[in-house]
């Protein structure tokens, strides 16, 4: 029975000590500890969030980089294509131009040759005519120095005309 009878003196001391303990610990221990634990938990959560965010950002950046590389590649390809086309065109143009020029030169050469030829022919003709006349004059002068010769020539000429 003694065992389960509360003792007044002990109750007094218990009350005193426990209430003092409750206040002291709440003020000097539990509040600071819980605050620190909360702060740390918050810090950890924030750090985790930040890491997650950074990861997402990194992923985004990587994706962007890839996109950029792809675009650059495309651009490069386009540029190469363009350059090739331009070069081809230039070559073609040059070729055409050269051809044209050559043709032109050829044409002009031909023209000038023709002209020269014509001129030469004309001169030749003229000279030939002159020579012919000279010759003819000489011949005529020779041939017609006698009457027979004049007559033979006339016959011959007449014969030629008949043949034509």
């Amino acid at each position: 029975m003694d065992l389960i009878t509360p003792d007044l003196g002990l109750l007094f001391w218990t009350g005193l000590v426990f209430i003092a303990l409750l206040f002291i610990l709440t003020k000097f221990a539990w509040k600071p500890i819980l605050n620190m634990v909360n702060t740390r938990e918050q810090k950890i959560t924030e750090a985790l969030e930040l890491a997650e965010k950074t990861k997402a950002e990194m992923q985004l950046l990587a994706a962007q980089n890839e996109e950029l590389v792809k675009e650059a590649r495309k651009e490069r390809d386009a540029m190469i294509k363009d350059a090739k086309a331009t070069a081809d065109k230039m070559v073609d143009d040059a070729k055409n131009k050269a051809k044209e020029e050559a043709e032109k030169v050829l044409e002009s050469a031909r023209t000038s040759i023709n002209a020269e030829k014509a001129a030469a022919i004309a001169e030749l003709k003229a000279q030939m005519a002159a020579f012919s006349i000279e010759i003819a004059e000489k011949v005529v002068r020779e041939n017609l120095s006698s009457d027979e010769k004049q007559k033979a020539l006339a016959d011959k000429l007449a014969g030629e005309i008949n043949l034509n």
Partner: peptide, 19 residues
């Protein structure tokens, strides 16, 4: 009562030490 003081002292030591 003595042990009560001792317990309080030890608890204070542990908790306030942590704080």
């Amino acid at each position: 009562v003595f042990v009560l003081f001792l317990v309080s002292f030890i608890v204070c030591l542990l908790a306030i030490g942590t704080a």
